[in-house]
């Protein structure tokens, strides 16, 4: 089906994009890769009067490393991230996440910023960004703002951004040491389907194998992606042994507070809450053994 007719504006620069969004702010949507907006517009679940095409803004594309973080332009496609030279080293969670996204066609067109601004808990990036304690940079008529990954998404499909504000960069903190382990695990009925549960975790261990930093994000269970704070507290300062791992499931289920839990024909909410514990155990176990062996490898090198 065709989307409803809309006014099409193609932005020529970031400044121009913000101006176009501002001028049409009552009824406007920015178009990046279109992997969410176009299907929604075709189903007429979303019918903006004006679409501002930001897809050609080269200033929002590409990846660069800074002292403190890896900075990813919001319009960098998932394929560009997957093939980037930066991923093989210090950012294992980015790699583990991006290769799980959709299919090749979706990765080729879909951008990381477009995904995050869509604020859909059942997709891969939101949980990962929470686990990584990423910062999001946005730009609007009033200038630049920095958001925490935790507070960026307010409710499903709604972010902290104003209608005339654009997500411009994603900053992923550099790990403090080389002993990093990560894992992104999800359950889906078939490849490319909406997930039933997502756990994304990154751990750093010291030379005794104790976790010195822990980040765990959960998606596709709560209506927005959340941090598993109790799981992080459980793991911090500890070696992850069988006893600790056995407690992971219960702590994860404590992450959702009073939040509504997703429920549909594929997975009712009680099933999602049940399965997420098992996924979390597997995810933490995998991330920890990766971190521990990276740590051991480093020790030998010294």
């Amino acid at each position: 089906m065709y989307p409803r007719a809309f006014k099409y504006e193609r932005a020529t620069s970031l400044e121009n994009a913000i101006e176009l969004l501002s001028r049409n702010r009552e009824d406007v949507r920015p178009l990046a890769g279109g992997m969410s907006l176009i299907p929604l517009a075709k189903l007429r679940l979303l019918s903006p009067g004006c679409i501002v095409d930001i897809g050609r803004l080269s200033e929002l594309k590409g990846i660069k490393q800074d002292k403190e973080w890896l900075e990813i332009g919001a319009l960098t496609t998932n394929t560009e991230i997957l093939e980037s030279k930066w991923l093989s080293g210090s950012y294992p969670l980015l790699l583990d996440t991006v290769k799980e996204i959709g299919d090749v066609q979706v990765r080729n067109r879909g951008t990381i910023g477009g995904n995050l601004a869509q604020a859909d808990s059942s997709t891969d990036w939101p949980a990962t960004m929470i686990a990584l304690r990423a910062k999001f940079v946005s730009r609007g008529p009033k200038g630049e703002r920095i958001h925490d990954a935790d507070s960026f998404c307010i409710e499903p499909y709604t972010t902290a951004l104003d209608p005339d504000e654009l997500l411009t960069h994603i900053r992923v903190p550099n790990p403090a040491s080389g002993s990093v382990g990560a894992s992104h695990i999800k359950l889906e009925r078939r490849k490319g389907d909406y997930a039933i549960g997502i756990v994304s975790a990154q751990l750093e261990v010291d030379n005794e194998g104790k976790c010195v930093s822990v980040g765990v994000g959960i998606g596709a269970v709560g209506v927005i992606a959340v941090r598993a704070s109790k799981t992080e507290q459980l793991l911090k300062g500890r070696r992850v042994d069988a006893d600790t791992l056995a407690k992971v499931g219960d702590t994860v289920r404590d992450s959702f507070g009073g939040m509504d839990i997703l429920s549909d024909i594929k997975a009712p909410s009680d099933y999602r809450l049940d399965v997420i514990g098992t996924l979390a155990e597997r995810c933490i176990s995998k991330a920890y053994s990766m971190a521990a062996s990276a740590g051991a490898g480093q020790g030998k090198g010294r």
Binding site: Y8, G34, I38, Q105
Partner: peptide, 8 residues
């Protein structure tokens, strides 16, 4: 590769 039904 791109899905041409999901592009204007």
């Amino acid at each position: 590769a791109a899905k041409s039904c999901t592009m204007f």
